[in-house]
Design a binder for these strands. Sequence first.
DNA 1: TTTATAATTAATCTTTTACTTAACTATCTT
DNA 2: AAGATAGTTAAGTAAAAGATTAATTATAAA
Lengths: 112, 112
Amino acid sequence: MNRRPAHEDVFQAIAHPARRKLLELLEKGELPVGELAKDFHATPPALSQHLTVLKKAGLVEERRQGRQRLYRLTPEPLQEISDWVASHKAYWVVKLAALGGYLRQKHGNPKT
Amino acid sequence: MNRRPAHEDVFQAIAHPARRKLLELLEKGELPVGELAKDFHATPPALSQHLTVLKKAGLVEERRQGRQRLYRLTPEPLQEISDWVASHKAYWVVKLAALGGYLRQKHGNPKT
DNA sequence: TTTATAATTAATCTTTTACTTAACTATCTT
DNA sequence: AAGATAGTTAAGTAAAAGATTAATTATAAA
């Protein structure tokens, strides 16, 4: 069945809030670990390990410059999340809209 | 800082492929556990435990009918995923488009 | 060349996750 | 009432995830 190993799974990678934060920080552009560390309450090894997870999931790439390591976002794998959301959202929307309709009937017309 | 406990986190809940599959199955409508089990290679307790995770994340609700338990999708918490994707996708798109541009320059014009 | 800096890797520990088997609860059928 | 059915809860275990401290690598500065 060839399932992708958990440690390369993008759903898994974004499951931890610390890693989502890292991705968000990297939207500012390529940054050295030291910069990431500033906005981040964790020891250097913990940070490094989270970055490794992101790297294995293909979400970041690393480049060395002097003694710094610069990380940049490579967002392509996030497409898988986006696709999953998109392919199911159609259903949710109907579902949630139906709930909205129900609530409007029940409580009056908050948002005609 | 009031972080939501991991066992109620929707990102965590959808991180496991088995749970994503359950959500997808439930798009067909409310179903008893036995129906879910058919499309699902797992022992009853394993299935039950995955359903519990989904329930704690607010993604499904359970209703008893005779000796069956019917589960239905309550997709509202998935909005958090959708919002996260939406709020970052703007950035990815630029990033990926830029890469596309780069590739076009480099390899000729696959998709003017 | 020694020392400092930036960050990772290694080793270890704790906690959480996922799964399993066994026992249990509730309902339905006979 | 005695099974059978549907599913959960409990208890135990193994593996994975996350964090920590200590050791290591590579580069830069003194």
